[in-house]
């Protein structure tokens, strides 16, 4: 059977790094090519045109967006559907922000080793909270993100963040 192409529309560069490093290698055997494109600098009209094109060519696509301050996943999905005509089934809501997916991949052992104190919930962590817990030994935020990706623990990720677990079960492996 001819392999299909997959288009993944994500929000920003941090999301792109995460999908390139953690997701793409795990689904690359299923698709002939996987395009991960950021929509952060793309206007709403352009996003609508991309989605319209995916529908017309019958391509597989995933629209990934953060929950942000929206209280409810269903409401966020409805908003995205109304705004960009994305089919509800193709929308993945990252709870709350992509930093939650990054942080979820740290096992308890890693958290202790890095000297991160306090109880932090990967389902509720925001960008600002994430930035506050970056261990001092890292020169920058990016250095910390890259370190997490290098040592990402998928089992911990699925255990610690419900939306990441949902995504992995739906698209990668149950």
């Amino acid at each position: 059977m001819k392999k299909r192409k997959l288009f993944i529309l994500i929000e920003g560069v941090d999301d792109k790094r995460f999908f390139e490093k953690i997701i793409k290698p795990r689904i690359s055997s299923v698709y002939c090519s996987i395009n991960i494109d950021t929509s952060a600098q793309t206007g709403n009209e352009k996003i609508r045109r991309y989605v319209k094109s995916f529908h017309k060519m019958g391509a597989d696509y995933i629209f990934v967006t953060d929950l942000d301050e929206k209280a409810c996943i269903t409401k966020k999905k409805n908003d995205i559907h109304r705004k960009f005509r994305v089919r509800q089934d193709n929308i993945i809501i990252v709870v709350k922000e992509i930093e939650g997916w990054y942080f979820a991949g740290l096992s308890g052992k890693d958290i202790n080793k890095l000297g991160i104190r306090g109880i932090i919930n990967a389902n509720t962590i925001t960008k600002e909270e994430f930035n506050r817990i970056i261990p001092k030994q890292y020169e920058s935020r990016l250095a910390f993100l890259l370190e997490i990706l290098e040592n990402y623990n998928i089992r911990a990720g699925k255990r610690n963040n419900e939306s990441f677990c949902y995504f992995m079960n739906k698209y990668v492996s149950p």
Partner: peptide, 24 residues
């Protein structure tokens, strides 16, 4: 490439597709 032609029909410029790495 038929897929690229679909993008172009939907008024996405060729330079936009290049930036988004969609010309493959």
């Amino acid at each position: 490439n038929e897929e690229i032609q679909v993008f172009l029909e939907n008024e996405l410029g060729i330079e936009e597709l290049f930036i988004q790495n969609l010309l493959t």
